[in-house]
Write a protein that binds this DNA or RNA. Sequence first.
DNA 1: CCCTTACGTTCCACCAGGTGGAATGGCATC
DNA 2: GATGCCATTCCACCTGGTGGAACGTAAGGG
Lengths: 260, 260
Amino acid sequence: MPLKSDTVEAAARTLVLLEELNRHRVASIDILHRATGLPKSTVVRLMKSLCAMGYALNDPRQGGYSVASRVKSLSNGFHGDPLVVEAARPWALAFTEQYQWPLAIAVLDRTAVMVRFSTIPYSPISPFHGTINMHLSLLCRALGRAYLAFCPVGERSMLLDMLARSSEPEDRLAGDRKRALALLAAVRKQGFAERDPMVEPRSSGTIAVPILSGGKVLATVGMTYFTSALDRASLVQHYVPLVKTLAANIAGSVESLRQP
Amino acid sequence: MPLKSDTVEAAARTLVLLEELNRHRVASIDILHRATGLPKSTVVRLMKSLCAMGYALNDPRQGGYSVASRVKSLSNGFHGDPLVVEAARPWALAFTEQYQWPLAIAVLDRTAVMVRFSTIPYSPISPFHGTINMHLSLLCRALGRAYLAFCPVGERSMLLDMLARSSEPEDRLAGDRKRALALLAAVRKQGFAERDPMVEPRSSGTIAVPILSGGKVLATVGMTYFTSALDRASLVQHYVPLVKTLAANIAGSVESLRQP
DNA sequence: CCCTTACGTTCCACCAGGTGGAATGGCATC
DNA sequence: GATGCCATTCCACCTGGTGGAACGTAAGGG
């Protein structure tokens, strides 16, 4: 079944597989098969190609495959992160250095938010391995909810209209506009967003707030943590204010960078 | 003409093309054709695929193609385990070839360290079972103690907080913060960590040191030996310095691999 | 200890996808 | 207007890529 009619199928599959591999420290054939929907013999053949070319390594004792250093040459020519990411980078790195927990910066991309920067590589205790370019839903994920709750009323209305047409399971709540608006009002009241408790993995959680400028949401910033490591009081009284201060500092840097 | 007999040809060509694209701010079809040796129709077809999937952009006004932000998904997983294991592998294999004793590389995984690479299969004196993917405690095992003793103060504090909530027998000492910190101070003073003498197997021992970078512990490296084969003087005066040098070499390789 | 389950790997018949030379189109230069 | 150069499209050809089935191995449970 072709992914897109004007793509080279084998190439598309290989790239999707490599993206999935980047999400894990080590990934088995079974994990890659489930995540991509490709038959196992196809996964094996494509992974062998990636290993032969130096993009991946397979150590059977480790239990699977992992990315190798050659993958850097597939992206090292890209230098076009959004302004808000440039502004956020030093603040986010300093935060993770001081508090250990990883941060993510996400921006709106059609009807989801997309992670454009993360301090996961600099955190010793990250629940995730590679989240760059992940799409996160607006109604079930912390980074998305923080966007939808704090964006202008007109924008929220339009986004909810678009979400109502979606067939994604995580967008289902958009079909019940009243409940969706009530959820978002609760997020605004609380002052920060959290991942829906029904969404996996349940061993971790995220708190997220908007990065605001001129009444608009430029991006959202979220801190992810292991639920076994932080009790709710510590989370709400200690970390939420820190993430809010971080967001304000980032917004300030965006303003500075915008001056000619 | 196939690149390699065990690769998916179309995938290999696409990746080579993408690497070449990364070398240019903008690249024309002709440039890509000359650099890769692929026929122009092949280059066009593969570039169309890359554009359709979001890895490249075509702007005729700019004079060709350039990489797009999605390429970051192809490399963002190269940090932590994959990075440290790739950096450590050649150094560790050379060490075991020269000194025979097996080595293990371990990284932090929540509140324990996990062995991610081991030279046991390459050691002529490896009566030890394979240890890859084993979790080792932070307070009773050499590889764990090396991590906890030499990591930054803030991180140690947080890890001890998390360990205090653990019900694992080997984490019990975390309940007595003062004694735990005294143990770790002693490890730092000694310059290397050892397994708790009460922990089995007593016929063997491990010496471990941190792999440091920018004031943080990336991983720990440990050498396991038979206690009947080495006296303490030989261990401390001969092998500990060798393992420390090994760790410094690995750290250097990590820095090199981190460059874009 | 044996059976079952789950996962990784190999095989191979099948055919659809990928190939590249030739032709075409567009643009700049003289 | 002719020429040269580069990008793109076309399409006959055939080989590379596919995926279900079979096999091998290891782990877990009774």
